[in-house]
Amino acid sequence: QEELVKAFKALLKEEKFSSQGEIVAALQEQGFDNINQSKVSRMLTKFGAVRTRNAKMEMVYCLPAELGV
């Protein structure tokens, strides 16, 4: 569980995922086979993730800066 949270936060820091499906796929690539869209959705809510525009003006998920991840 701890490893999943770390990987999840690291992915969001990249600010390149525009959908929950993309986050699920990226986590599965890292070996988290039991991850699915509903789990990702709950984690996004739990950590207060928001959708914002990145440098390329794409809408992407990211974590609020005050979490200091």
Score class of each variant (00 low, 15 high):
Gln1Cys: 15
Gln1Leu: 11
Glu2Gly: 11
Glu2Leu: 12
Glu2Ser: 12
Glu2His: 12
Glu2Tyr: 12
Glu3His: 10
Glu3Arg: 09
Glu3Asn: 12
Glu3Met: 12
Glu3Phe: 11
Glu3Gly: 10
Glu3Pro: 10
Glu3Trp: 09
Glu3Ile: 10
Leu4His: 01
Leu4Gln: 02
Leu4Cys: 15
Leu4Arg: 01
Leu4Ile: 07
Val5Ser: 09
Val5Tyr: 15
Val5Cys: 15
Val5Leu: 12
Val5Asn: 12
Lys6His: 10
Lys6Ala: 14
Ala7Glu: 03
Ala7Ile: 07
Ala7Tyr: 06
Ala7Asn: 03
Ala7Cys: 15
Phe8Asp: 00
Phe8Leu: 08
Phe8Thr: 03
Phe8Val: 06
Phe8Ile: 05
Lys9Trp: 11
Ala10Lys: 09
Ala10Met: 11
Ala10Leu: 12
Leu11Met: 09
Leu11Phe: 05
Leu11Ser: 02
Leu11Arg: 02
Leu11Tyr: 03
Leu12Gly: 00
Leu12Val: 04
Leu12Tyr: 01
Leu12Phe: 04
Leu12Thr: 01
Leu12Pro: 00
Lys13Phe: 09
Lys13Met: 14
Lys13His: 09
Lys13Tyr: 11
Lys13Gly: 09
Lys13Asp: 06
Lys13Ser: 10
Lys13Ala: 12
Lys13Thr: 08
Glu14Trp: 07
Glu14Val: 06
Glu14Cys: 15
Glu15Gly: 08
Glu15His: 08
Lys16Thr: 08
Lys16Gly: 04
Lys16His: 06
Phe17Lys: 03
Phe17Gln: 02
Phe17Thr: 04
Phe17Asp: 01
Phe17Leu: 06
Ser18Met: 09
Ser18Ile: 08
Ser18Thr: 13
Ser18Leu: 08
Ser18His: 11
Ser19Gln: 07
Ser19Thr: 15
Gln20Cys: 06
Gln20Met: 14
Gln20Thr: 13
Gln20His: 09
Gln20Phe: 08
Gly21Cys: 04
Gly21Pro: 09
Gly21Leu: 14
Gly21Lys: 15
Gly21Ser: 13
Gly21Glu: 15
Glu22His: 07
Glu22Asn: 05
Glu22Ile: 03
Glu22Ala: 13
Glu22Tyr: 04
Glu22Trp: 03
Glu22Cys: 04
Ile23Gly: 01
Ile23Cys: 02
Ile23Leu: 13
Ile23Pro: 00
Ile23Phe: 08
Val24Thr: 07
Val24Ser: 05
Val24Gly: 03
Val24Met: 08
Val24Asn: 02
Ala25Ile: 12
Ala25Met: 12
Ala25Gly: 06
Ala26Leu: 05
Ala26Lys: 08
Ala26Pro: 00
Leu27Lys: 01
Leu27Met: 06
Leu27His: 00
Leu27Ala: 00
Gln28Cys: 06
Gln28Asn: 08
Gln28Leu: 12
Gln28Val: 11
Gln28Met: 12
Gln28Tyr: 08
Glu29Tyr: 09
Glu29Gly: 10
Glu29Arg: 13
Glu29Ser: 12
Glu29Thr: 09
Glu29Gln: 12
Glu29Cys: 06
Glu29Met: 11
Glu29Asn: 10
Gln30Tyr: 07
Gln30Met: 14
Gln30Ser: 07
Gln30Ala: 11
Gly31Pro: 00
Gly31Leu: 02
Gly31Arg: 03
Gly31Ala: 02
Gly31Cys: 03
Gly31Met: 03
Gly31Val: 01
Phe32Lys: 01
Phe32Met: 02
Phe32Pro: 01
Phe32Ala: 01
Phe32Trp: 09
Asp33Ile: 14
Asp33Ser: 14
Asp33Arg: 14
Asn34Phe: 13
Asn34Ala: 09
Asn34Gln: 10
Ile35Ser: 02
Ile35Met: 09
Ile35Asn: 01
Ile35His: 01
Ile35Thr: 04
Asn36Glu: 06
Asn36Pro: 05
Gln37Gly: 09
Gln37Phe: 09
Gln37Asn: 10
Gln37Arg: 15
Gln37Ala: 12
Gln37Thr: 12
Ser38Thr: 11
Ser38Pro: 09
Ser38Met: 13
Ser38Gly: 11
Ser38Val: 12
Ser38Phe: 13
Ser38Ile: 12
Lys39Tyr: 11
Lys39Phe: 12
Lys39Ser: 12
Lys39Ala: 13
Lys39His: 13
Ser41Asn: 10
Ser41Arg: 14
Ser41Gly: 09
Ser41Met: 11
Ser41Cys: 05
Arg42Cys: 09
Arg42Val: 12
Arg42Ser: 12
Arg42Ala: 14
Arg42Thr: 11
Arg42Glu: 15
Arg42Ile: 12
Arg42Gln: 14
Met43Leu: 13
Met43Glu: 01
Met43Asp: 00
Leu44Glu: 01
Leu44Cys: 02
Leu44Ile: 08
Leu44Ala: 02
Leu44Ser: 01
Thr45Asp: 11
Thr45Arg: 15
Thr45Gly: 08
Thr45Glu: 13
Thr45Val: 13
Thr45Asn: 11
Lys46Cys: 07
Lys46His: 13
Lys46Trp: 14
Lys46Asp: 14
Lys46Ser: 11
Phe47Met: 09
Phe47Ala: 06
Phe47Lys: 01
Phe47Pro: 01
Gly48Pro: 01
Gly48Thr: 02
Gly48Lys: 09
Gly48Cys: 05
Gly48Val: 03
Gly48Glu: 05
Ala49Gly: 04
Ala49Ser: 04
Ala49Arg: 03
Ala49Gln: 02
Ala49Met: 03
Val50Leu: 08
Val50Ser: 07
Val50His: 07
Val50Ile: 13
Val50Arg: 10
Val50Met: 09
Val50Gln: 09
Val50Tyr: 11
Arg51Ile: 12
Arg51His: 07
Arg51Asp: 02
Arg51Leu: 15
Thr52Gly: 10
Thr52Gln: 14
Thr52Ile: 14
Thr52Trp: 06
Arg53Val: 13
Arg53Gln: 12
Asn54Ala: 03
Asn54Gly: 05
Asn54Cys: 03
Asn54Pro: 02
Ala55Arg: 07
Ala55Asn: 10
Ala55His: 10
Lys56Cys: 03
Lys56Phe: 10
Lys56Pro: 02
Lys56Gly: 07
Lys56Ser: 10
Lys56Tyr: 09
Lys56Ile: 06
Met57Leu: 11
Glu58Lys: 09
Glu58Trp: 03
Glu58Asn: 06
Glu58Met: 07
Glu58Pro: 03
Glu58Gly: 05
Met59Cys: 03
Met59Gly: 03
Met59Leu: 15
Met59Trp: 15
Met59Pro: 04
Val60Phe: 04
Val60Cys: 02
Val60Lys: 03
Val60His: 03
Val60Pro: 02
Val60Leu: 03
Val60Gln: 02
Tyr61Asn: 01
Tyr61His: 02
Tyr61Asp: 01
Tyr61Met: 02
Tyr61Arg: 01
Cys62Ile: 12
Cys62Pro: 01
Cys62Val: 13
Cys62Asp: 02
Cys62Tyr: 07
Cys62Asn: 05
Cys62Glu: 04
Leu63Val: 04
Leu63Trp: 06
Leu63Asp: 03
Leu63Ile: 08
Leu63Lys: 02
Leu63Glu: 02
Pro64Thr: 05
Pro64Lys: 05
Pro64Cys: 12
Ala65Leu: 12
Ala65Phe: 12
Ala65Asp: 14
Ala65Met: 11
Glu66Cys: 15
Glu66Thr: 06
Glu66Gly: 09
Glu66Ala: 08
Leu67Asp: 15
Leu67Met: 11
Leu67Val: 14
Leu67Thr: 15
Leu67Pro: 15
Gly68Ser: 10
Gly68Val: 10
Gly68Ala: 08
Gly68Tyr: 03
Gly68Glu: 15
Gly68Pro: 15
Gly68Phe: 04
Gly68Cys: 06
Gly68Gln: 12
Gly68His: 09
Val69Ile: 09
Val69Glu: 15
Val69Gln: 14
